[in-house]
C-alpha cells in the first residue's frame, strides 16, 4: 500500500510548488499511472517517496510507514526503476543484478538471477557481458530484473518503458500484470498514454503539482485519454 497525504514539495527559489497538496492511495495489486508534462511534479512525487527529497508538508507512506520517519524500513519495502537505468559498466548484467540484490539484502544463486533477467526480457547471451556494452533498453531490462529480485510490496516506475522496443514494452506490460497479481502496489510516472490506458487500474493527470484528473479503469474505457490530456494541458 502506498499513500500520499496532502504531499507538498517546494524547491528553494521556485515560484510554485513542484507538488502541491497531492493525495492519493495505491492499493496492493493496483497500478496507478501518473501522467503529465515535464515539470508537472511526477518525478518529484517519486523522489519524495524514495526519500531523495524532503516534502515541505504532508506525508508519504509506504505500507503505513512514513518515508521521513522510517527511511530505511520504507526503502526496504519498495523497488524503483528510474527512467534511465545506470549501472556499473565494469560488471556484467548478472553481476549488476547480484550486486544490487545484495545491497537490498537478497542473495540469490546464479540460476535464480538468470531467471530474473530472463523474466525481464534480457537475452541469455547478454547475461555475462559487461554492461558497458549494453544498449539503453538492455540496461532498462536489468533495472527491471533488479526490481523483480527485490520482491518489494511497492514498485515505483519512472518512465520505465523509455528505451524499450515495442516487443519489450509489451513484455513489460505482461510483467506488470504478473506483479499486480502478486499484490504489488505500482505507481508509474509516464508520458506514454497508450501504455497508461492499457496497463493502469487508475490514471491521474498532473498539472502544476496537482491531480487535475483522476480516472478509474471503467472511466478510462470510455474516455479519449489523449484528448483529455491535451485539454488539461491547454487549460
Amino acid at each position: 500500500m502506498l499513500t500520499l497525504e496532502n504531499l507538498t514539495k517546494r524547491y528553494p527559489g521556485a515560484a510554485a510548488p513542484a507538488v502541491d497538496g497531492l493525495t492519493l492511495t495505491v492499493a496492493p495489486g493496483e497500478l496507478f499511472a501518473l501522467l503529465g508534462p515535464n515539470g508537472a511534479g511526477k518525478t518529484t512525487t517519486l523522489n519524495c517517496l524514495l526519500g531523495f527529497v524532503a516534502p515541505n508538508s504532508g506525508r508519504a507512506l509506504i505500507d503505513g510507514l512514513d518515508v521521513v520517519a522510517a527511511p530505511l524500513e520504507t526503502k526496504r519495502r519498495l523497488a524503483y526503476i528510474p527512467e534511465q537505468v545506470n549501472l556499473y559498466g565494469h560488471f556484467s548484467g548478472l553481476e549488476n543484478l547480484a550486486y544490487f540484490s545484495e545491497l537490498a539484502g537478497h542473495r540469490y544463486p546464479d540460476t535464480e538471477l538468470r531467471r530474473f533477467l530472463a523474466e525481464a526480457g534480457l537475452q541469455d547471451d547478454a547475461h555475462g557481458r559487461r554492461v558497458g556494452g549494453y544498449s539503453k533498453g538492455m540496461r532498462q531490462k536489468v533495472g527491471i530484473a533488479i526490481a523483480l529480485a527485490k520482491n518489494a510490496k511497492v514498485l515505483l516506475l519512472d518512465e520505465p518503458t523509455s528505451g524499450l522496443d515495442p516487443g519489450a514494452s509489451h513484455e513489460f506490460s505482461r510483467l506488470l500484470r504478473r506483479l499486480r497479481e502478486r499484490g504489488v502496489a505500482i505507481l508509474m510516472a509516464t508520458h506514454d498514454l497508450f501504455r497508461a490506458k492499457a496497463d493502469a487500474d487508475r490514471v491521474g493527470i498532473m498539472r502544476h503539482g496537482r491531480l487535475a484528473h483522476l480516472l478509474t479503469a471503467a472511466e478510462l474505457a470510455h474516455t479519449d485519454l489523449e484528448k483529455l490530456y491535451l485539454e488539461t494541458m491547454a487549460a
Binding site: 531523495f52 527511511p71 526503502k75 524503483y80 528510474p82 545506470n86 544490487f100 533488479i146 527485490k150
Partner: peptide, 12 residues
C-alpha cells in the same frame, strides 16, 4: 546516475 538506484536498493 547510479546513486539513486543504489540508495533505493541499500536504504541507507
Amino acid at each position: 546516475g547510479v546513486l539513486p538506484l543504489v540508495v533505493a536498493q541499500a536504504g541507507g
